[in-house]
Amino acid sequence: MPESVLEIDRISKRYGNVVALEDMAFTVRAGEMFGFVGSNGAGKTTTMRIALGVLAADSGEVRWNGAPLDLHTRRRIGYMPEERGLYPKMKVAGQLAYFGRLHGMAPREARRSAESWTERLGLAERRNDEVQKLSLGNQQRVQLAAALIHEPEILVLDEPFSGLDPVAVDVMSQVLRERCEAGVPVVFSSHQLELVQRLCDRIGIVRSGRMVACGTVDELRDSGAATLVVDAPQAPAGWAEGLPGVRTVGTDSGRTTLELERGADDQAVLAAALATGPVHEFSRRRPELTELFRNVVTEESAA
């Protein structure tokens, strides 16, 4: 088993007749950013809570470097919950130092780390403010600092970008990249799919407690249906009907948008278009993560 790998190995969880997770499995390597996406209730938070030891799995196992996670290992995880786990009446610096000490840091070390992270996250001027007096975005920054205060070996973040303005998103993105470059595996869930696509090395799409797609952005985009835009002004209506693996999505003034199943021959489409007359445009586009995710949700609704 290679070192520095977080493994979620076929974990399952039920609440009575409700299946929260079923054979959930994926790995996150050192220095890798893994995006975890799915609809509300798909099982993302349950998976994270099992990894943290907050919930117990009915079956399966969570391992770090080949060994099951225990209390000592879990103290080395930086966790950012979706629901803020901060004390609203405590001051920012004191609260962060307190969290550092809970993770085993010496008092002076914890205070120094709190000072460093508040500076890094743009909170230096708010160190002596109560958390409840901060904006929601700044509270989110404090929550990230609480996850980072003890220099964790693993980062698990549940909706870390929720409620952040574009500047704060850039700051948090840079911090997560830096942690990855330092060899820390980062797992985060988000509904901001464009951000997930831009930041993550690999992505897992979850539906009804199961991992239904997992891979790099390019792998996922290549696995979905591609789109062709064909501008053939003399082509009659329905000119692409009957071509294997090709579906007409829409037409507008001679410009036809087609969806191609994986393996469909785009050259056959071009030949069919040329047979009708001149072709002014023939462009292929891979689906974005947002489209892939929407297709997964559609499949779930239709099932």
Rank of each mutant, 00 (worst) to 15 (best):
G43Q: 03
A146T: 10
A272E: 10
R120W: 11
H191K: 06
T47F: 00
G100E: 03
R127F: 12
D222I: 00
D222E: 14
I77G: 02
G104A: 04
F34H: 15
I50W: 00
T256A: 03
R202Y: 11
P185C: 00
L123R: 01
D252V: 06
G53S: 08
E159P: 07
L228N: 01
R294N: 10
M33C: 12
L176Y: 01
R247F: 09
R262I: 14
A168W: 02
M211D: 04
V230G: 08
T46I: 07
S190Q: 06
G85A: 15
F293W: 06
L258N: 00
V37S: 04
P68G: 04
A213T: 05
Q192C: 00
E178W: 07
L164G: 08
S59L: 00
A20W: 07
F188M: 05
S59P: 04
L69V: 14
S12W: 04
V156M: 14
L52N: 01
A302M: 11
V169H: 00
H191T: 09
V269W: 09
E3Y: 11
S190W: 12
V175T: 12
A268Q: 13
D252C: 07
E181H: 12
L155V: 12
F36M: 10
G183Q: 05
H150M: 07
W239I: 08
L134V: 12
M90D: 10
S173C: 05
R111H: 13
P278V: 05
R63C: 07
P68H: 00
V246C: 07
P278N: 03
E194C: 01
L289F: 10
T118F: 07
L199C: 05
E291W: 09
R10V: 08
G66A: 06
A93M: 10
G163H: 07
D70F: 01
L176H: 02
I11S: 06
A272I: 06
R294H: 10
Q143G: 13
R126L: 14
G245P: 10
A272W: 04
M211R: 01
T256R: 00
A57G: 11
V297D: 02
L220F: 11
A237D: 15
R126V: 14
I205W: 10
R84N: 02
A106L: 14
G43R: 02
G53T: 08
V5Q: 04
V206F: 13
H150D: 07
R75C: 09
V175C: 03
S162D: 01
G41F: 10
G250D: 07
